[in-house]
């Protein structure tokens, strides 16, 4: 079973994260301040480190820099109430692999944990993604549904690829904006909705079952059930 270290001073968050990680099959250890977290992270090997940015004793980014100096290469997901772009960039430059602003939806946390796990998995990335009757070829950048070719624009391909990698799970708008458009802010108009519905028209027209599902307050998902 993979092991995770949660360094977070807020017990309610800590509890919630541990529970989410448990659902994802991790055994999670907790530390409540930066110093203890740094000692633990340096002493034991972890498959994932979830790190809060603002903490007593030693702040998250300092812990992160020290860990990287000690050649700890575990993927690190930084959590923070400071969700601003500049701070995200600063976090990523300090050696974080991903940065998630509080508050976040459970689904979004899980999507990021999975994405990190995929990136750090030793085996090569799959060339073909299969979700129900949808087939996505990564290198050729083609999408087929039940053998029928679905033409997609550059961003539409990135969108369906991101949804397929997290098939069966709802992905939030902000997660898609960050992953597909590399945007770290929410535009006023819901541009994601419009892009998704355009993709949905291409994907679901002529098929009885809706593959691309949206739910208010949750986001969008690619349904895996046939």
């Amino acid at each position: 079973m993979p092991a995770a270290l949660v360094i977070e001073d807020d017990p309610r968050f800590s509890e919630r994260i541990v529970e989410l990680l448990r659902q994802e099959g991790y055994v999670a250890a907790c530390e409540v301040d930066g110093e203890a977290g740094l000692r633990r992270g340096a002493a034991e090997p972890f498959d994932l480190i979830v790190l809060d940015r603002m903490m007593p004793a030693l702040d998250g980014l300092t812990v992160l820099r020290r860990l990287r100096e000690l050649d700890v290469r575990s993927p690190v997901l930084v959590l923070s109430a400071l969700g601003r772009v500049a701070e995200k960039v600063e976090g990523l430059e300090s050696g974080a692999d991903d940065y998630l602003a509080k508050p976040f939806a459970d689904e979004e946390f899980i999507a990021r944990v999975r994405s990190l796990a995929r990136r750090f998995r030793p085996e090569p990335h799959p060339e073909v993604l299969l979700v129900g009757d949808i087939e996505i070829r990564i290198k050729a950048r083609t999408v087929h549904r039940a053998g029928k070719h679905i033409p997609t624009s550059r961003k539409e391909f990135e969108l369906i690829r991101c949804l397929a990698e997290n098939a069966g799970r709802f992905l939030s708008r902000s997660y898609l904006l960050e992953r597909v458009w590399n945007l770290r802010f929410d535009p006023q108009t819901n541009v994601v909705d419009v892009h998704v519905s355009r993709l949905r028209r291409k994907l679901d027209d002529g098929f009885a079952r809706e593959a691309l599902v949206s739910a208010r307050g949750e986001g969008y998902k690619l349904d895996a059930t046939p």
Partner: peptide, 9 residues
């Protein structure tokens, strides 16, 4: 943000 995050969760 922390209380708001708790509320949301």
């Amino acid at each position: 943000r922390s209380p708001l995050a708790h509320l949301r969760a």
